[in-house]
């Protein structure tokens, strides 16, 4: 990788100042950023580590109402601590990457990167979570802006994510055989007001809500109700691991599995 200056502030305020510098970029767990820097696809002048900021870490919540995850909280910590509030979220975190990746990777880093096959975006979008930054609160429906893109501005740092707790929820994913990212993953969350379904891994546009499935499931929360329903294959990713049609098909299978798991 190219060389850069490294700073590791201990407060959010210091981090914000550091990120105002020329070509400064935040570093969370680094599990995606560092590999892309090794390939010289990314060349920050200054890397501002967020892992030294205690305020950005931790899981807190109110049973049955909401859970808030600090942006620099690792997947492993979410897996271990979020289950008391939101089991489906903890389960998702427990299956991201591999154990060593889960000990470094963070929810904030995952969301800011918005990899089209990452797991967290599905949970955030299906849950209707709120992303809090140093500047504002952003609703999940407004946050994602296509593959590897979000509405975050230069220098804007995610500080936490707050998930409302659904009545029932589950995540089902089908692994891409090589990378073990989601070839297609479906997060289903049933709230009093209706069901939300978010699909990751499948679309060229990144994570998306599958609204047809949501209306069907809001009427009848069962996998059988989805029989024969598929999102359009147009706009789905097609690569050596699966055609667009296959991914569209997997959207149906994974959503049904998630519904079954949510009970």
């Amino acid at each position: 990788m190219y060389n850069f200056d490294f700073v590791r502030p201990s407060t959010l305020a210091e981090a914000v100042i550091a990120l105002a510098g020329d070509e400064a970029q935040p570093l969370a767990g680094g599990q995606t950023l560092l590999p892309s820097m090794k390939q010289r696809l990314n060349m920050p002048g200054t890397l501002v580590s967020l892992t030294g900021i205690a305020d950005l870490k931790g899981v807190s919540g109110e049973a049955g109402a909401s859970v808030t995850i600090g942006a620099a909280t690792t997947h492993a910590q979410v897996a271990a601590e979020a289950g008391a509030f939101y089991p489906a979220l903890a389960d998702l975190a427990a299956r991201i990457g591999d154990p060593a990746v889960r000990n470094r990777g963070t929810i904030g880093g995952s969301l800011a990167n918005n990899d089209p096959s990452a797991c967290y975006p599905a949970a955030v979008l299906a849950s209707g979570a709120t992303i809090t930054t140093n500047k504002r609160e952003i609703a999940a429906d407004d946050f994602f802006d296509g593959m590897f893109a979000t509405v975050l501005e230069e220098g804007e740092i995610i500080t936490s994510v707050t998930f409302p707790i659904p009545q029932a929820a589950a995540y089902a994913k089908f692994l891409q055989p090589a990378s073990r990212f989601a070839l297609t993953g479906a997060f289903v969350a049933r709230f009093e007001g209706g069901v939300r379904v978010a699909i990751t891994g499948a679309s060229e546009g990144g994570v998306f809500r599958w609204s047809d499935a949501e209306s069907v499931l809001s009427n009848s929360f069962s996998g059988d109700a989805l029989a024969g329903k598929l999102p359009a294959a147009e706009g789905m990713i097609s690569d050596l691991h699966g055609s667009a049609a296959y991914r569209a098909h997997l959207c149906g299978v994974m959503t049904r599995r998630a519904v079954a798991a949510a009970g």
Binding site: P177, A178, L240, H241
Partner: peptide, 26 residues
């Protein structure tokens, strides 16, 4: 038999050029 696939595209670019795309048995 199950997963290892070395794929060049028509331009001779190796699409399965890392463990992200070349599936090693785990």
């Amino acid at each position: 038999a199950l997963c290892e696939q070395t794929t060049y595209d028509a331009d001779g670019q190796l699409l399965s050029a890392s463990y992200m795309d070349y599936a090693m048995p785990r």
